[in-house]
Design a protein around this nucleic acid. Sequence first.
DNA 1: CGCACACTCTAGAACGTTCTAGTAGCTCGG
DNA 2: CCGAGCTACTAGAACGTTCTAGAGTGTGCG
Lengths: 334, 334
Amino acid sequence: MQSAERRTTLADVAAEAGVSVALVSIVMRGAPGAGAATRERVLEVARRLDYRPDSRARLLRSGRSQLLGVVFDVRHPFHSDLLTGLYAAADAAAYQLTLSAVTPRRDEHAAVADLLQDRCEALVLFSPKMRPAELAGLAARLPVVAMMRSVRKRDVDVVHTDDLDGARQAVEYLIGLGHRRIAHVDGGTLHGSAERRQGYEDTMRRHGLGEHIRVISGGSGEEDGARAAGALLDDPPSAVFAFNDLSATGLLDVLRRHGLDVPGAISVVGFDDSSFSRLAHIDLTTIAQDVDTMAARAVARAVERVEGAPVPHREVVVPPRLVVRGTAGPAPTA
Amino acid sequence: MQSAERRTTLADVAAEAGVSVALVSIVMRGAPGAGAATRERVLEVARRLDYRPDSRARLLRSGRSQLLGVVFDVRHPFHSDLLTGLYAAADAAAYQLTLSAVTPRRDEHAAVADLLQDRCEALVLFSPKMRPAELAGLAARLPVVAMMRSVRKRDVDVVHTDDLDGARQAVEYLIGLGHRRIAHVDGGTLHGSAERRQGYEDTMRRHGLGEHIRVISGGSGEEDGARAAGALLDDPPSAVFAFNDLSATGLLDVLRRHGLDVPGAISVVGFDDSSFSRLAHIDLTTIAQDVDTMAARAVARAVERVEGAPVPHREVVVPPRLVVRGTAGPAPTA
DNA sequence: CGCACACTCTAGAACGTTCTAGTAGCTCGG
DNA sequence: CCGAGCTACTAGAACGTTCTAGAGTGTGCG
C-alpha cells in the first residue's frame, strides 16, 4: 500500500551530490552563497530524487512558516469567490494558505484555534462575527486582517468594500432609470448592513426622495430575501435594492412566483457579484465587490505586518462598481 | 503589535513545574507513566502558562501528524455540506483536517501538491476529476479516499452514494404519483452521471415505460439545468428527474419563468439534498445523500488505512433516501 | 610579496517535540 | 536481606530543517 521508504531529505540529496547538508539547504532556498555549477548539480540531484522540503521542519528551525490562516464560512458563496482570489494573491507573495472553515456545527473560535495551532503567521478572517475585544485579543498574538467588516480597534487591519458608495451607485442607477419608489432590504445586524442602509437613505434624500424611503429588515441568506419579498407584496415598490446577491435571488424568486415581471414591473439590484449572479437564468444586476483587489490588498497587508513593514493606514477601502445585467430596467410608466 | 516573547514550550512548563521535559510530554499526551499528583500539577502549570503543543515539532519527531488532507471545490455547494460533516467526523476520531480548495484558477494538482507538502497522513478527495492512473499514483504515496466517485483501482478507497438506487427511488416515487412521461437531465460526463442515468432507464423499463425514456444532456451547475429546460419546453414531460439539486434549481427557474406551474403542470426531483434545497422558497423534492454517514465512513476508512487496520471492502456504498418536499406532485390528469 | 577581502563551502548547534533506554525508589516473596 | 518486578521519573538522542561561525581558496592591490 503506502511506500515504506522514508521520504528523501536534505541529507539524502547532500550525500548523492557529494556536498554538505547546509549547502543543499542554501541551494533549495535560492539563498546566496553557492557557486553556479554546484547549484545546478544539486538542483539536478534534488529533482532526480523527487526531494520536497519538509515545511514543518523548516518552520521549526526558522520560526517562519510562510503560512497565512484563512477563516471562511462554507455557507457563503461570496466567500468562495474571495478564496479564489486569495489563493492567487498568496501564491504571488510566496505565501501558502491554510483554510479553516466555519460550518453550522463549527464556530469561529474553533476555526481560529486550529489555525493558531498550525502556527500561521497571520490571520485573514472573512466577515468575522467576533466581538471587537476578541479580535483585539487575537491581534495581540499575531497580525489579523478582517475582511468585509470595519473594526474600530488599533492593531486589527481591515479590508472592505466602500459599502456606502456601493449603495449610492445602486440607488442612483435606479433613479437614473426613472424609479422613485425604491425600497431596501437590509442585512439586519450583519456587518456592512448599517453602511449600505445609510448609503441608501442618504442617496434617496439627496435626490429629494426622502418620503419614499422604505427599509425592510432582512439578512444574508436566500430565505431572508424571500421573507422580505412577502412583506413587499402588499404594496410593491418599483425597485428594490437588496443587501446582497443571495438575498436578492430569494427575493426575485418569490416576486416572480407571485406574477410580478422582473424587470418589467419591478427592478432588483443586488450586492457582491457572487459567481452565481452571473448565471444566465439569474442574470442579476448588482454592485460588484472587487474580489481580486480585496484579496490582493488583504494578503499584502498581512505580509507587511508579518515582515514588519511600515503600514500607512489601518483600513483599506476598495471601491465597488455597478454591473448591469438583466434584473433592473426603466421604471414602469404608471 | 504582536507579542515579542516566545510562545511557551514544554521546557517552560517543565521548569515551572520542577520536572523533566519528557515527563511533561507524557502528561500532555495523556500517555501512561506519570503519577496522579504530578499529572495534576503539570496540567495546572500548563494551563496557567497557556501552553499549546507545537504540532509541527510533534510531527517532526513522531512522524505522525494526525492530519487528514481534504480537497474540495469552492463552486460546489454540496461540498460545503460534506465539509460540515467531515469536520465532525474528524473531530471524533481525534484527527485534524487541512483543507485545500479547487477554484476556477487552481486545479486539483495544485491542491494536492499543497497537502502533500503539509505531510498529511491520508487524502480525502471530493469528486476528483483526475485520471484513475493519477489517483493510483497518489495512492502509492499515501492512503487515498475518493468520494462521490467510483474508481476501479486497488489501493484507492471509495465512498459514494448508491446512485443507481437513488435514481430508482426518484423515478418510482414519480411513477407512484401517476407520472409516465418522465424525463432525465443527466450530469454529462461527470462521475455518478452514468449510474444515475442507468438507474433511471432501468426503472422506467421495469415499469413498462421504456418508450417514454428521454435523456437530456446536462451537467452539474444551475446553467446546465437552465439549458436543459430550454430543450424540454417544446414538448414538456410531466416530470423531470435532474442529475443534482443545482441543476434542478436552474431547471425550475426556467420552467416557472415560462409559465409552467410546479408541481401543478410539471414535477421536478433533484439529487443531493444540498442545504439550499431545504430553503422555503425552493423547497425541492430530492434524493438525499447521507452526508453524515458518508463523512463518517470516509474518515473511518482513512484512519483505518493510516493505522494499518484490516479493511474489509475497498468500496463503501451509502444508501440515499427520498426527501419529499414541494416540487413534485400528482401527474396532471390530462 | 603579503595581506585583506570575496567567495564557496562546511561543521555543528538549534528549533520543540517524542522516543529509547535507562535510574531510583518501592514492595514483596523467598 | 537479596533481587525481581513494579511505578515514577529523567537524560539525551533523534526528526529535517536553518543559522552562525568559521575554514579553505583565490584574487586584487599596495
